[in-house]
Simulated scan of single mutants.
Amino acid sequence: MSAPMISYKNHRYPPQIIAHAVWLHFRFPLSLRMVEEMLSERGIFVSYETIWRWGRKFGQAYVKQLRRKKPSRKDIWHLDEVVISIGGQKHGLWRAVDQDGYVLDEIVQTRRDTKDTKRLLIRLLKRQGLKPKGVGTDKL
């Protein structure tokens, strides 16, 4: 079943701008006026009322297109560690991301501990219900 095509006919702005404005409003906890201000900083002058109308008109279609697909055995997961600073202390943030960029799971730990990292992978396998085709790491 294919996704329905969204028609931007008779709109003043290009589809990319409309899609970006609606995405900003629904993806992040931003008010319509904040989205209006962010677009105006980029030289796109549109009122918050217009963004509201775009959200009413295109919001459901975007949601249907962006719904998370079911996991499959053809997925490839990427595990990555990033060192972040929380309250002046260094912590390791492990994230598991699939090939489409969806964050599957994450864990924050104060030190590099292989036991906790294995626990993340086991928890991820249980949550997803099946094994992926491959798992890539940054060789840490």
Rank of each mutant, 00 (worst) to 15 (best):
Q89D: 15
Y62E: 12
S47A: 07
H91P: 00
R56Y: 00
G92A: 14
I84Q: 10
G43W: 08
G55D: 04
E41L: 09
A21H: 08
K9L: 07
A61R: 13
D75P: 04
K118H: 10
E81G: 07
T117F: 14
L121F: 13
L66T: 03
R53M: 02
W52I: 00
R42Y: 00
I76D: 07
L120S: 07
V82C: 02
H91E: 09
G87Q: 13
Y8P: 02
A96F: 03
V108R: 07
L104W: 05
L104I: 15
G59R: 13
A3F: 11
P15G: 11
R111K: 15
F26D: 06
Y13A: 08
W54S: 02
E36K: 12
R112N: 02
G87M: 10
G88S: 07
D138S: 11
I122A: 04
I51C: 00
R56N: 07
V108I: 15
G134W: 06
K74R: 15
A96P: 02
V83C: 13
A21P: 07
D105I: 00
R123P: 00
F28D: 09
K133N: 06
I76C: 12
H11T: 11
V83A: 13
S47D: 07
Y8N: 06
P71S: 11
W52N: 10
R73W: 03
D116F: 05
G129P: 00
L24D: 01
G101T: 11
P132E: 03
R112F: 01
G129C: 05
L30C: 04
H91S: 06
V35M: 09
L32H: 06
V83E: 14
E106Y: 13
L32M: 09
